[in-house]
């Protein structure tokens, strides 16, 4: 049994150590894999706020991942073609600057999350799952038919976007950027979970009627959680697109929404580092077993089954059982 705080630090330090070890051993591909862990962990950390604290089973978080991806793709596409993005009277210049792209990804994801949240939070349970899934499919098919930006084939970006003062094409530097963002987001999530907002949201998941009875609105609390959650997953989408220098409708697919949920459940629902641990297991299995068999998902399924049946707190729950009421 390890105290959660130490486990969190150990996982993050472990990722950094592995990346430095790969750097020393001149294995850029390993660094790329670790970057994927960090980015998928970030995307799932976003979902974890809605799912873990707010109890919102969203099967549509790929919407935000895809929006982040396309925010990057579209801005970079216009920058590399030297053709501004014409939106009616508005003419927006493309950009290859990561911070600008991140802000765009966050803003677009948050705005769409407000709309999806307002509509889907009128329902709960299975209906909530179905509505979020339906939104995901809408975006997926829209992206497929959007031929300006590659349609089904997706959109390639020739050169990774830039960050002031860093060479983002160097795998370790890009990894560093992603890890720094993950740490920042986890810090914010941790504060949020223990803040007054987190206290109320946590209660709104368990007993919404109690939250109302003390004069607060569970729906508003959950809506804000959904928006924050979507914004984080959107940011991860922009980074993922930059990692691959490629965006495609797959980022909007419901399989991806499902995978994000698998990452959270695998690591531990509502546990701060859970999504990162889940992403690490997922990428490791994909890489190690994927080389041996096309059907590696079977083993992922077995692990998921065992976790759900015997370890509801996920891997993090096994290592560091939850304590109650500490600050």
């Amino acid at each position: 049994m390890i105290r959660e705080r130490y486990l969190n630090l150990a996982v993050l330090a472990g990722l950094l150590a592995l990346a430095l070890w790969a750097l020393a051993g001149d294995q850029p591909f390993t660094i790329t894999l670790l970057t994927k862990v960090v980015i998928l962990g970030l995307a799932a950390a976003g979902l974890n706020i809605a799912l873990g604290i707010g109890g919102l089973v969203s099967l549509g978080h790929a919407v935000f991942f895809g929006l982040g991806g396309y925010a990057m793709g579209i801005l970079a596409f216009h920058a590399q073609n030297f053709a501004p993005l014409e939106l009616g009277p508005l003419s927006i210049a493309g950009t290859k600057s990561m911070p600008v792209i991140w802000l765009a990804a966050i803003a677009v994801s948050a705005a769409v999350a407000v709309v999806i949240g307002l509509l889907s939070l009128r329902t709960s349970g299975v209906y909530f799952i179905m509505i979020t899934l339906a939104f995901g499919q809408m975006f997926y098919y829209f992206a497929i038919s959007w031929s300006v930006y590659g349609g089904e084939d997706g959109l390639s970006i020739y050169v990774r976007n830039g960050f002031p003062g860093l060479n983002t094409l160097d795998p370790i530097q890009f990894f560093g950027i992603c890890l720094a963002i993950l740490c920042l987001v986890l810090l914010l999530s941790d504060r949020l979970a223990r803040s007054p907002f987190g206290l109320a949201l946590n209660a709104a998941r368990q007993v919404p009627v109690r939250v109302e009875t003390v004069g607060l609105s569970p729906t508003r609390l959950k809506l804000l959680a959904f928006v924050i959650s979507g914004a984080i997953t959107g940011l991860a989408g922009a980074l993922y697109a930059d990692l691959n220098r490629f965006v495609s409708p797959t980022m909007f697919s419901w399989q991806l929404s499902g995978e994000l949920m698998v990452l959270v459940i695998l690591g531990g629902v509502g546990r701060l580092i859970g999504p990162v641990v889940g992403a690490a297991i997922f990428v490791a299995l994909e890489h190690l077993l994927g080389g041996l068999t096309e059907f590696w998902h079977i083993w992922l399924g077995v692990i998921l089954l065992l976790i759900v049946l015997f370890a509801r707190g996920g891997v993090v729950g096994l290592i560091s059982p939850r304590r109650v009421g500490h600050d």
């Binding site: 914010l188 504060r191 949020l192 223990r194 803040s195 007054p196 907002f197 987190g198 206290l199 109320a200 946590n202 209660a203 368990q206 007993v207 109690r210 939250v211 009875t213 003390v214 004069g215 607060l216 609390l221 804000l224 109650v324 009421g325 600050d327």
Partner: peptide, 28 residues
């Protein structure tokens, strides 16, 4: 809220009384 501590349940009431749940940084 059965998963939470007794104190946290009481604090939820205090939070409702304060009318200020939109605070995100300092632990409740």
């Amino acid at each position: 809220a059965m998963e939470d501590s007794v104190l946290q349940n009481a604090m939820l009431g205090a939070l409702g009384h304060s009318g200020r749940p939109w605070r995100f940084w300092r632990p409740a």
